[in-house]
Simulated assay, not measured.
Amino acid sequence: MQKMARNVKRFAATTLSVAAVALYAVAATLSAASADEADAKKLLKAMSDYVTAQKQISFNYDTNLEVVTKEHQKLLLASSGTIELDRPDKIRATRHGGFANVEMTFDGKTVTLFGKDANVYTQVDSPGSIDHLIDELRDKLHRPVPGADLLLPNVYDELMRDVTNVKDLGSGVIGGTECDHLAFRAKEVDWQFWIAQGDHPYPCRYVITAKKVDQGPQYSIQISDWKSGTDVSAADFGFKNATDAKQVDLKKLGDIDELPQHFAVGGSK
């Protein structure tokens, strides 16, 4: 009987020790996850604050837009361009792809969309800030600025809206620049950021995955030749019709978006 009691005590002690180790491991994992989440948010906030603080910015970009066919084949549409801005109310953006070669200029009062290949342009009065223009282009004119999320003054708040999961994935290298790699999950999309390490935490790559769309297509923008402040060359943000382009209504401007007109937009899952 005494031997049995000793065995029971030994078994109980062993079980409790294993349980304690398991609980410690779970606690350590949760603690590490919390630390990673806090670090990721801190890094994203630092990028947001840095970008917002820059009065002048210029960079080159490359985008990839995935399109899924009815047969579940993924097609990748690629384009490149440039962005120059002078806060609060001046911006120039170009995009050149297989279906579009367009330049947008905004001088604080008038936005001009210039289709270079067709040599036509349209102008819309939209006095206000760059932030106001971005909203107008997206919501009313349906001509979003590439990487517009990154140009808003409240980048962090906009990106963190509806986020349910945050991960710090360590380091990655984009275009030779070492970056912090962060991953986020929201209700409708997953998104990732690669942010340059150091005193100038600018965004190097931004990838969005549409979870609610069949096959989860992605949109990505990769940034290079980032410049800010005094490194940015002075730019003229007014439209100069140097090619005798014809002025037309916006509806007749033709393909100026990343998704060409003959691509039909389908439904979600």
Results as ranks from 00 to 15, higher is better:
R161L: 15
L43C: 06
G254Y: 00
L259T: 08
F114V: 04
K246I: 13
I208Q: 01
V124P: 09
L23E: 03
Q123G: 08
V111E: 07
I223E: 02
D36C: 02
P203M: 05
R10I: 12
F99W: 06
D139Q: 11
R143W: 06
K252L: 07
G266C: 11
L133T: 08
W191V: 04
K251R: 07
E178C: 00
D139V: 08
G254F: 00
G198Q: 00
S126K: 11
Q73A: 14
D131L: 10
Q56I: 09
G175K: 01
H132N: 10
V265E: 15
A78W: 02
D225K: 00
Q261C: 13
F263M: 11
N119W: 02
G81N: 03
S17F: 04
K116F: 14
V189S: 13
V166S: 05
R185N: 15
D62N: 14
T122N: 01
D117V: 09
A53E: 09
M1H: 14
A28K: 09
S268V: 14
S79C: 13
E158N: 12
G198E: 00
A19E: 00
L113M: 11
A234G: 14
Q73P: 13
N60E: 13
K227Q: 15
S224V: 03
T14W: 04
N165W: 08
K212N: 13
P203Q: 03
L182D: 01
Y156K: 05
L75N: 13
K246S: 14
E158S: 11
K9S: 13
D149L: 11
Q247L: 13
L152V: 11
T63P: 06
R87V: 06
E258K: 15
V163R: 00
E66M: 05
Q247P: 10
F11G: 12
A234Y: 12
G115W: 00
H72F: 15
G147Y: 04
L44S: 05
A148N: 14
P260Q: 04
V248M: 03
L150T: 01
K90I: 08
S48I: 07
E71W: 09
L16M: 01
D49Y: 02
Q192M: 11
P203N: 02
N7Q: 10
D190E: 08
P260R: 02
Q73K: 14
A100R: 00
K3W: 05
A234E: 15
E71L: 14
D149A: 10
D125Q: 10
Q222W: 03
K240T: 14
Q123Y: 01
A19L: 04
V68R: 04
L133I: 06
N7F: 06
R185Q: 15
G97A: 10
Y61F: 08
D107F: 12
V111Y: 04
T15F: 08
C204T: 03
K116G: 12
S228T: 08
A12M: 04
E37Y: 02
R6C: 10
F239R: 05
D86R: 07
Y61I: 09
A13F: 01
H132T: 10
Y206E: 02
L169E: 07
I91M: 11
K187L: 15
I221D: 03
L259C: 09
N165T: 10
Q215I: 10
G172A: 15
Y202V: 00
G254A: 12
L137F: 01
T82P: 09
G115M: 04
F59N: 07
Q261E: 15
A25C: 09
C204R: 05
D225Q: 02
A196C: 01
Y50R: 04
D86F: 09
S233H: 13
T243A: 15
L159T: 02
H200E: 13
